[in-house]
Nucleic acid binder design. Sequence first.
DNA 1: TCTTGAAACTTTATGCTTGAACTAACTGTC
DNA 2: GACAGTTAGTTCAAGCATAAAGTTTCAAGA
Lengths: 155, 155
Amino acid sequence: MTAPFAQQEALSKERLRLWLRMLRVTRQVEAALRERLRVEYDSTLPRFDVMSALQRAPDGLKMNELSRSLRVSNGNVTGIVDRLVEDGSVERIAIEGDRRATRVRLTPAGRDAFTTMAVAHEGWVNALLDGVTEEDAHHIGELLHRLPAETGERQ
Amino acid sequence: MTAPFAQQEALSKERLRLWLRMLRVTRQVEAALRERLRVEYDSTLPRFDVMSALQRAPDGLKMNELSRSLRVSNGNVTGIVDRLVEDGSVERIAIEGDRRATRVRLTPAGRDAFTTMAVAHEGWVNALLDGVTEEDAHHIGELLHRLPAETGERQ
DNA sequence: TCTTGAAACTTTATGCTTGAACTAACTGTC
DNA sequence: GACAGTTAGTTCAAGCATAAAGTTTCAAGA
């Protein structure tokens, strides 16, 4: 038995409101983080994300794996990695047996830089989410975990 | 009395986890919405946002007000409005008494287009947030409302 | 071996986004 | 009226993001 129309309407509106609010908050937090990364480490969120993914893979990742794990397009990762290579945080390593692919790995300098940034990053997030208790975090985390619906590819 | 160190550490990690999850979900939902707008209406999320803001202001908004209400940079709005003007959804109107400023307003065509898209948009969000009950929405909405901390400029 | 198709990347065109520099116009105050 | 400072907007350079097209390499079957 489905809910009455009026009730579905109300739920739909409520979800829209929630979505807009989520969007506002994430954008605000993202903006704050981006600003800090820029000012304090002359870096960016996408660079940070790439380095973060690489840090968890001591042997590096293929471009492929990188873009899939970050859920961004292939071409996008090419550019970000280019810039990371340029400033020495990351290196491209040939894969023997497959000349199409390359492995991307943090350099020691890149690893150091990331470690520093990661500590700061956690502190910023912790401060920005000041109003969130451990219970809140758990509860919302649970809900978010099963969202969004129907997009498949849950990870 | 402050909480013990270990407990604060745990809370910090939990908040970081929550943030990463929020980021993942919003990006996923955003990507889905962007894709739909592109395929079905040959439009984009930023254009939609601008039109949405304008729709609530029958007399239009100054570029200034627009960028403040969307929380994006001035220069950014210039470009988006340029493109909206190009395809006839929006018009720039001189303000008498101040030749620096212009008022931006939806054209009738733009208003129609937006109405159509807005209905579809609500439907998409409703479907994407399928797992969210009205209580969930309320609860999370409440929490999000007081986030993020310390950034001032609440809305 | 040849060739067909897939896979791994890069390139390109377009658009969004920011911060910073710039132009033009307005608002005092002397 | 001149001018200093502010306000409104645009322009610019750089980077991020996507989709689509292109290149090189690999794998497998005829």
